[in-house]
């Protein structure tokens, strides 16, 4: 799978409260509605900026720390965020992202700036920074995660095999 879009850059230790605040999460179970508040704590215009043409969220270390809320990857998907690239991820967010079908890539993000045109080749394990003309390699997903993502997330996998088939 190849994903192409502009980079939307954030820093280290972005917690899931910042991806979607608890005060909104209880107001609605409609992810399209909640998506308007994605990343609002750090960038009140994130949804308006990313949703028209899609984007790739780029961050530093420990992206998605904190709460187990699956609304976090879901509001990113519903805001037209194609993938998240970070130096490292917190455990629960990482699983939730794969389970809901949001590609997550762990690599060095220092060579990516806001607005850079990116291309992600998930199978080859390469992020190409088209703007800067550089390639950033990354280790492919562990086989279990790759299978879940290829099946379209955990729910689709579970339905396909009537249980786990990892």
């Amino acid at each position: 799978m190849e994903l192409c879009a502009k980079a939307f850059k954030f820093g280290d230790d972005i917690n899931t409260d910042y991806v979607i605040s608890g005060k909104y999460k209880f107001k609605s179970n409609d992810m399209d509605e909640l998506a308007h508040h994605a990343m609002e704590e750090l960038d009140p215009n994130y949804y308006e900026r990313v949703s028209p043409n899609g984007g790739i969220l780029v961050a530093g270390k420990n992206f998605g720390m904190g709460s187990s809320r699956e609304q976090a990857p879901l509001v990113l998907i519903h805001s037209n965020t194609y993938a998240v690239i970070a130096k490292s991820f917190a455990r629960i967010f990482y699983r939730n992202a794969i389970n809901t079908g949001l590609p997550v890539v762990e690599c060095d993000t220092d060579l990516i700036d806001e607005g850079d045109e990116l291309k992600i080749d998930l199978e080859a394990g390469v992020v190409t920074n088209v703007t800067k003309g550089i390639e950033i390699p990354f280790a492919p997903l562990p086989p279990v995660m790759a299978k879940l993502l290829a099946d379209g997330g955990l729910a689709a996998h579970f339905k396909k095999y009537q249980g786990f088939n990892l």
Partner: peptide, 17 residues
């Protein structure tokens, strides 16, 4: 702690990876 879909799979299957 797990997300809702992992939790759902567990509640159905009694198992998780």
């Amino acid at each position: 702690g797990v997300g809702s879909t992992d939790g759902a799979a567990t509640m159905i299957a009694g198992k998780l990876w």
